[in-house]
């Protein structure tokens, strides 16, 4: 089967004044549909950079990323925006909800962008699934961090994307909330058969047996293996 994400000698260099920062250098890997991938590695190792490239938010300096059939190097902004709206879901470290919209509207926003027909029930169902049925009409600032991230998960998955991209989704949450949020995300993604690529400082939080763990150091791929079962708590 053809991989859903193909990464070939991918490099990304940032320019800081005259200073060049090589955030990723010649990373190659394939991810198949339905895989659950965790990027790990020390701070500054290039995890976020790789996720941004997979998420079609940025373009590489060299090499290729192809997600589904879209080559990120070659697509126009318009095509990439459309692609993100239909085929990708995002969960951010800082939740990134839209402050003027309530929970329901934040989730609906994703569906509006996807330009497919939907029903009210599609939205209320996901909100129910993330356990926020009672909070539908609350604004984000009336919610706790864990609740906000659950709204973000609902928003990221309501349009049933092919790939969910999550950059340190639990970095701003306490340990207990983190594991709750993570198991919720895992569960929902599994249910939708969504491929998950996430980064985490603490991969051991994932309570899932078949996880693929990719390790980056200084922008280079240094490890790619199914996580040993002993790591599962």
């Amino acid at each position: 089967m053809k991989p859903i994400i193909q990464i070939n000698k991918l490099s990304k260099t940032y320019l800081l004044g005259e200073h060049k920062v090589e955030a990723l250098s010649e990373v190659s890997l394939n991810i198949h549909a339905g895989e659950f991938v965790i990027l790990s590695g020390p701070s500054g190792s290039g995890k976020s950079t790789l996720l941004q490239l997979i998420g079609c938010l940025d373009t590489p300096t060299a090499g290729d990323v192809t997600v589904l059939d879209l080559n990120v190097n070659k697509a126009s902004d318009r095509v990439m925006s459309n692609f993100r709206a239909r085929s990708l879901g995002f969960v951010f470290q800082n939740f990134n909800l839209i402050p003027v919209l309530n929970v329901y509207e934040n989730v609906e926003y994703s569906l509006l962008l996807g330009k497919r027909s939907y029903q009210k029930k599609d939205i209320t169902d996901v909100i129910e699934q993330v356990g926020l049925g009672k909070f539908s009409h609350h604004k984000p600032n009336a919610l706790s961090g864990g609740q906000r991230q659950r709204v973000a998960i609902a928003r990221a998955l309501v349009h049933k994307p092919n790939v969910l991209i999550a950059d340190e989704p639990t970095a701003n949450l306490d340990a207990k909330t983190s594991s709750e949020v993570l198991s919720l995300m895992t569960e929902l993604a599994l249910e939708n058969n969504t491929t998950v690529v996430m980064s985490s400082h603490d991969p051991s939080l994932i309570e899932k047996s078949d996880v693929r763990q990719i390790k980056l150091v200084d922008g280079k791929l240094v490890g790619d293996e199914p996580r040993a079962l002993s790591n599962v708590i």
Binding site: L57, S81, N96, P99, L113
Partner: peptide, 14 residues
Amino acid sequence: TGEIGTIRALGTQR
């Protein structure tokens, strides 16, 4: 700026 980044990331057109 942050909000613009968010909605663009989610796929909002320019």
